Simulated scan of single mutants.
Amino acid sequence: MGALSDLRSEAGAELEELELDLLLEALVRRYGFDYRLHERDALKRKLYALMHRRGLATLSSLQDRALHDPASASALLRALSVPPATLFDDPQEALQLRGLLDACLRGAALPRVWLADCAGAEQAWTLAVLLEEEGLLARTEIHATVGSDELLAEAAACRIPVERLAQCQRLYEYAGGTASLTVHFQIEDGHAVLLPQLRSRISWAQYNLVTDASFNEFQLIVCRRALPDFGPLLRQRVLTLFHASLAPLGILGLDRPLASDDAHARHYQQLLPQQAWYKRIA
């Protein structure tokens, strides 16, 4: 019985991998979104969570829904995207950014920042507040890219309940903020939206890190939330893209420190101990 059970378990695992392969291929061929080089375990966690919410038993049933129902396809692609950020939800990262902004942006004629695979409007708004308080926003362009039209629509429609803005105040203070967050927002009907003069410095665009080429030169590139889901080959492809897009002496923010054998590691100097912030030196 033990051997038979092992065979059944092995067959089930093989079937699961086949179903996953077919689902990912379907997403490429039907919608043009390529997750085939993402970490398999991360994909499975996201997919099974979606299946549980939808009451689906197999990846094949999820694929069937996604191919024939636009709403299901949209929900699937959203589930595989970077989870949405909330305002100052990572105060340590925001504090580190606050300390690095001047070094990479102050001397540039037209400073540009790229939030690659941005985690939604509130991540971009957090950066805009930091830049405003450091006296850099008026000269700086923030380019926030996301993977789909749905994510662009979410960013454009973003509003924060006023009570949640108050809850973010403490996180903002942990990140070095000394004012009231409300000075950066306009309040209407119980919701807060970033002031127009701050929002105007953020440009949103759909962009695919898997397939698209470099589109500008940047003094700061931040991609700390999407990279953990990338498999080794895709990770190296994206790091090469960032290297081609980062200006000399620009700063790169990653999810984890570069390994010594990473293709471009010799071109970067680590700026903070045990933290994945790097200055391009060559």
Rank of each mutant, 00 (worst) to 15 (best):
V113H: 02
R65M: 13
L37E: 15
L87Y: 05
V113M: 02
A138L: 09
L137C: 01
Q92A: 11
S61F: 01
D41N: 14
Q96R: 12
A85M: 08
A144N: 00
Q123P: 05
K46S: 15
L136T: 01
C158T: 11
E134W: 05
D89H: 10
L105E: 00
L80V: 14
A144M: 00
E173P: 04
H68Q: 15
D69C: 11
R54S: 11
R159C: 07
A85K: 07
E150Q: 11
A103T: 09
L165I: 12
E39L: 12
D149S: 15
Q169R: 08
R30P: 07
R106F: 02
L56Q: 12
A166S: 12
D34A: 10
A121T: 04
P91N: 03
L152I: 13
A42K: 12
L62H: 03
P84Y: 12
S148H: 08
R40M: 11
E173F: 08
L101W: 03
E163I: 04
L105T: 06
G135C: 08
A79L: 12
L76E: 11
T58V: 10
V162R: 07
E173Y: 07
W125K: 01
A71W: 14
A109L: 11
L100T: 05
L131F: 05
A94K: 01
A116Q: 09
Q96F: 06
R40Y: 00
D117I: 01
L59T: 05
Q169W: 03
L95E: 06
Y48S: 12
F88P: 02
G147K: 06
